[in-house]
Design a binder for these strands. Structure first.
Length: 318
DNA sequence: TCCACTGCCACGTTTGAAGCGT
DNA sequence: AACGCTTCAAACGTGGCAGTGG
């Protein structure tokens, strides 16, 4: 992969990528997406080709709407009731609600994780402040969040539930946009389940290569993105560090936060980015597991996920 | 011994092709 | 021929559970 990225020319267009015979293998759309995103997020590999792509962790002015860590007053419950015992060891600075934007830059530095490396400011201008993103199935996410969302990760890849589903307003109906999602670690701790709550248990595993999910409709005009909610339900999570399927690779027993990015561009390979905005929703934070630890989460998943209807309540009792 | 992880299983949902009628 | 509806089987997405291995 790295060798391929090095060969990636900055002037490549989507059409060129399809035509290009890469080491004897014709790229399909997914492979091309993976490659370009790899390039965008690994500017160190890519610097020999000049200034990096504009899309990477942008700066987040607090008042511009460029990045919005949404705050929901109704979620501001007393600390003693928060998360029903989840993450009790966290200090107040780690609170989810109203927390600083969840970017690698805002995370604690740690050589093993590759945090704290200086990143040049985003070259692309911000999207207008009236570009807004809302979480569609927010109530469901909140239900899970209050208990402490767990996401199963498997070798072959597991879908997220609840799904990531968002609505967007304020885009230029005729402008073309690319929608991206990625998942970043929240902190540098590993966690373990202690009877009825999660607590930190040592340092996090070394950070894995960040993969980005590009919504398959990308690129599409603003009118397309705004006419109906956008679902990222096809995102799959895996703990297989050698995954070849393009799934998002995560460590088990770690906390993560999904992020969503809107980039104005003619295509995913375009050099000209007309602006970008990133959004996070605190209630979508989750903890990765290979088997559910909190029985309340298991029951809520069975209760709310249509695909889990084959598991009546009695069958899941431990 | 503990516990994170894996592979298989049974079950329900989703999807799409095939068949049929209008 | 085109369209819409129904049926049905295959594919897919689930959590449970027993076994494995560090």
């Amino acid at each position: 992969m790295e060798a391929s990225v090095k060969r990636l020319n900055r002037n490549m267009t989507l059409a060129a990528a399809f035509k290009m015979d890469w080491r004897g293998e014709r790229l399909d759309l997914h492979e091309a997406h993976t490659l370009i995103l790899h390039a965008m997020y690994h500017t160190d590999i890519f610097q020999q080709y000049g200034p990096p792509y504009a899309v990477r962790t942008p700066t987040y002015p607090s008042a511009s709407g460029h990045h919005e860590p949404y705050r929901y007053p109704e979620l501001e419950i007393p600390t003693s009731q928060r998360y029903d015992g989840l993450f009790t060891a966290l200090d107040t600075s780690q609170r989810i609600l109203g927390a600083a934007p969840l970017t690698p830059l805002s995370l604690p530095p740690g050589p093993a994780l590759g945090f704290g490396q200086p990143q040049p400011p985003c070259e692309a201008p911000q999207l207008p402040g009236n570009v807004k993103m809302t979480l569609e199935n927010r109530d469901l996410w909140k239900e899970f969040h209050i208990i402490g969302t767990e996401m199963i990760i498997t070798k072959s890849g597991r879908r997220m539930f609840p799904q990531c589903k968002v609505s967007i307003t304020g885009l230029d109906p005729d402008g073309k946009y690319v929608l991206l999602a990625d998942i970043v670690p929240v902190d540098n701790s590993r966690y373990k389940w202690q009877e009825d709550h999660w607590e930190p248990s040592g340092r996090a595993e070394p950070r894995l290569p960040e993969r980005v999910y590009i919504h398959p409709d990308s690129p599409a005009p603003g009118s397309h993105w705004m006419k109906q909610p956008i679902s990222f339900h096809k995102i799959k999570l895996t703990n297989n560090t050698l995954d070849q399927m393009g799934h998002i690779i995560l460590h088990s027993m770690h906390r993560y936060q999904p992020r969503f990015h809107i980039v104005r561009a003619q295509d995913v390979f375009s050099r000209r980015w007309g602006g970008c905005s990133s959004f996070t929703f605190p209630e979508t934070m989750f903890l990765t597991v290979t088997a559910y630890q909190n029985e309340k989460i298991t029951q809520l998943k069975i209760q709310t996920n249509p695909f889990a209807k084959g598991f009546p309540r009695g069958r899941t009792q431990k």
